[in-house]
Computed example of a mutant assay.
Amino acid sequence: MDFASQGYAVIDGLLDDSSLTAARALVDRVVRQHRAGAAAPLACGISITDVTRQHPRRNPDIDPQQWANEPFIIGDLIALDSRFAAVFCSEALWQCAAALLACTPDEVVFHFCNLTRKPNGIGPAVGWHRDASNQYFASEDNRTMRLLLPLQGMSAANGATAVVPASHLDPGADIDTALIPDVPAGAGLALHAAVLHGGSPNRSALERDVIVIQFGVRGSTLRHHADETLALAGRETFLAFCR
């Protein structure tokens, strides 16, 4: 897959079995804490109730009152459990980011991470959007990319992310040309900052937990900059943090 021309790519082998097992255990822990009403994950999170009330058309037939502690998004994962940083030290992640951002590995910097969930049966849709327009962490030159790392595998069956190929080169791209890549657990879906993407609700019996990591290039001028744990750190800083 030509990332430069298509604006997305499925990259195999980003998390080995050990890292994938660790990531699943850490995610399970923060999700259970959120469900139990722990203050830290709730402060970093958006619940199924929140998103259903804000965007009812994205989660039809779901009663928002029932899901106040069921997380949809949990942000700043490293702040909640520093062991996430060890998972994100994976050399494959940083090499992938360098290749797709067309820079050297030591120019790659971490921007942020979150857990985005579509729990089985109640997972909401994600509206069509381009990450370049976000107001959390964005650069003036659009030299950012996101890696979506599914922990169970992602497909049309469980509300996977759909992408409009080459839409990063076409502001008027039509969502009728969207496709839904299959992304196995341990692989990643790489998204250009300007590619158009979204996703349908998950009404299947399958879970869909995805770790989202955004990388950028050292020296890019940032239009929006969040105060997230290890923001703007390179891999060497991650490795030192994990020692």
Rank of each mutant, 00 (worst) to 15 (best):
H55S: 14
H55F: 15
P56C: 06
R58D: 15
N59T: 12
P60K: 11
I62H: 04
D63V: 14
D63R: 07
Q65G: 14
Q65S: 15
Q65T: 15
Q65V: 14
Q66L: 15
W67P: 06
W67Q: 08
A68D: 07
A68E: 11
N69A: 11
E70Q: 14
E70I: 13
P71W: 09
I73S: 08
I74R: 06
I74D: 12
D76L: 08
I78N: 04
L80F: 11
D81I: 03
D81N: 06
S82A: 10
R83M: 08
F84Q: 04
A85K: 00
A85I: 02
A85D: 08
A86I: 00
V87C: 10
F88M: 12
E91M: 02
E91K: 14
E91R: 10
E91T: 14
A92P: 04
A92E: 04
L93F: 00
L93Y: 06
L93H: 06
W94K: 01
W94E: 03
W94G: 03
Q95E: 03
A97C: 01
A97M: 00
A98E: 05
A99L: 02
L100E: 00
L100V: 09
L100D: 09
A102I: 10
C103A: 00
T104G: 05
P105G: 01
P105Q: 00
D106E: 05
D106K: 07
V109K: 07
V109G: 08
F110N: 04
H111S: 10
F112R: 13
F112D: 10
C113L: 04
C113G: 10
N114M: 12
N114T: 13
L115I: 08
T116N: 15
T116G: 12
K118A: 12
K118Y: 08
P119A: 11
